[in-house]
Computed example of a mutant assay.
Amino acid sequence: MSWFGKSLNHKFTIATIAGFLISSVVFLVLFLGFYQNKLEQEKAQAAHDVNRLLQTSLENAMLKRDIDGLITIVQHLGEQENVSAVMIVNPQGKVRFASRPDLEGKIIGKEFIEGLEAHTQFMKDETGREVLRSVNPVHNKPPCQVCHGPLEKHPVNGILLVDYDATSMRH
């Protein structure tokens, strides 16, 4: 046997280095998973924040009965980079206003709206493309009741949907 094979000190060094490399790889895999999850959460939060700002603008346009202004806001947002579609849907799921004319009048299935709570999630849109969909219900408020009726009968006036292209977010 060679001197290297007989040396206990060398065997210990090689085992230590191997243990260090294995634990480094394990921590790297764990860190990358955590980082990817945190990045997706941050993007979802940013999308939610943008949608709250948009919702405020849309509510203001509705209160002023500025339908043309509402349509312009929806169209301009739909032209933004990484935005696939912007839709305002009535509580029954019918698209009333959309950034893409082909979506207007379509019925969005309940599985694409998922209840009446604000949320953001990765999903497949109606065409099968992966999007980060932000769903924000527009709740009925006292000033809105003039057009939309009493709060008891109409708790939600509509739902704001913004689909962000998820391709760049997942890679």
Rank of each mutant, 00 (worst) to 15 (best):
G69R: 14
S134Q: 07
T56L: 14
L54R: 11
I107D: 09
G158Y: 03
E79C: 01
E126Y: 01
R133H: 02
T127M: 09
P101D: 13
V89G: 03
L161C: 05
I113F: 05
A118G: 08
V50D: 14
V138R: 13
N157R: 14
P142T: 08
H148S: 11
Q80G: 06
V156M: 13
A61C: 08
V156P: 10
N51D: 14
A85M: 05
E59P: 01
F112V: 01
D66H: 11
E104H: 05
G158R: 06
G149T: 07
D66Q: 07
H48V: 04
N136W: 04
I67L: 05
V74A: 10
K94C: 00
V50N: 14
K106D: 05
E81K: 10
A118F: 01
G128T: 02
V83D: 01
N37I: 02
N136T: 12
F97Y: 15
L132E: 01
K124V: 00
L54G: 11
E152I: 06
A98I: 04
H119P: 03
G105D: 06
M87D: 06
R100N: 10
N60E: 08
H76D: 12
P143N: 14
N157F: 02
V146M: 10
K43Q: 05
R100Q: 13
R129W: 00
A47L: 02
Q92N: 10
N157H: 04
E111C: 02
S57Y: 09
H76Y: 04
Q92D: 10
I73A: 13
L54S: 15
E104M: 14
H139T: 12
P142F: 09
N60W: 07
H139E: 13
A61R: 15
E111K: 15
Y35E: 09
E117N: 12
P137M: 04
G158K: 10
K141N: 08
V135Q: 00
V146H: 09
S99P: 04
K64W: 02
T127W: 04
A98G: 03
G158I: 07
K106L: 12
